[in-house]
């Protein structure tokens, strides 16, 4: 069987295929090597890293809602230094794009994390998580505001040597402005969306279902809204867009690509099926063959008139 060309050129980085595992849903990568060969992935984004370890939120941290998952993990993690010592060496020989999700509680911290990572090899790009709604109260974060996003992106761009993907939050009415300001500030790509600020209540006890009260909604429930945002943003910027939100099948991937995404990330689906991404990639290959598509990348931004 011949294979179709699934590869994607993001300009700063070439991917074997458009499917990247999303940050926070793929652990540090190693959790999944028990299920399949990580080299099959277009790439993967590791869990968000701050300069120091973070304890995370108290449980319950997860609640399931209709076709969705609300999480308030609170970005628990081992911090960038331990990551570089203990985990990165296990990832460095992989033949797939290893992307690091860079977090910060203030601008300088983003830059410090990126600078630390600059000292190590085997990383394809940094994904700036300017959009985590869990950390600050009420979900306020730099990604809600074009100026704050501009400041962080230009600061990190200046102080590090690797390509930057700025990951946007959907929790703003100004997503297009935020995307444009990230582009202006030198971001090499945009990824969207992060989770939607959400909550769930137990009507019997009148208590919130998450200890943090608020959390971020992901999964199939968010797909139509996320797709709309990817479509709107892709029309306004020239740098590549990486789309995500509720992808579980190859058809979802195709929709995002048609809407304007060059590549996609798959998140919550990894929990439901640890082999979800290899299955999606196989399906994409079959799709291209049955539809005589030579290069999958040619689908990007090809929404046809009704």
């Amino acid at each position: 069987m011949t294979h179709s060309d699934l590869s994607i050129d993001l300009g700063f980085c070439r991917l074997k295929n458009p499917v990247i595992a999303a940050s926070g849903t793929f652990g540090y990568g190693t959790e999944f090597s028990r299920f399949f060969d990580l080299n099959r992935l277009g790439g993967f984004v590791v869990k968000g890293l701050y300069s120091t370890p973070r304890p995370g939120n108290p449980p319950p941290r997860l609640v399931e809602t209709a076709s969705g998952l609300i999480n308030a993990i609170g970005l628990q993690g081992i911090g960038v230094k331990r990551f570089c010592q203990e985990i990165l060496p296990q990832l460095q020989d992989l033949d797939t794009a290893v992307i690091i999700n860079v977090c910060g509680s203030h601008e300088e911290e983003y830059a410090a994390v990126a600078e630390h990572l600059d000292g190590f090899e085997g990383i394809a790009a940094y994904e700036l998580n300017v959009s985590c709604p869990n950390v600050s109260t009420g979900g306020s974060c730099p990604a809600l505001d074009p100026e704050a996003t501009h400041r962080i992106v230009s600061l990190v761009k200046k102080s590090c040597r690797r390509p930057l993907i700025t990951k946007l939050s959907p929790n703003t009415g100004k997503i297009i402005e935020v995307a444009k300001s990230a582009e202006e500030a030198g971001s090499d790509a945009i990824s969207l969306v992060n989770t939607f600020l959400a909550m769930a209540i137990d009507a019997k006890t009148r208590r919130p279902k998450l200890a943090n009260v608020l959390g971020g909604l992901s999964g199939p429930a968010i797909k139509p809204i996320a797709l709309r945002m990817v479509y709107q943003v892709a029309q306004e910027i020239r740098i590549p867009v990486i789309g995500m939100g509720g992808i579980t099948t190859s058809e979802d991937v195709l929709e995002y690509m048609i809407a304007g995404a060059s590549a996609v990330e798959v998140g919550t689906a990894n929990f439901v099926d640890p082999e979800a991404i290899p299955l999606i990639i196989d399906e994409l290959d079959v799709y291209c063959q049955t539809h005589n598509i030579e290069r999958l990348a040619s689908l990007t931004g090809t929404l046809a008139p009704l």
Binding site: P59, P60, R61, N270, F271, P274
Partner: peptide
């Protein structure tokens, strides 16, 4: 027991 997102260490949801 805890609410589990994945069951194999990837989501950090199941903490105690």
């Amino acid at each position: 027991e805890a609410i589990m997102g994945c069951g194999f260490g990837a989501c950090w949801g199941c903490v105690h």
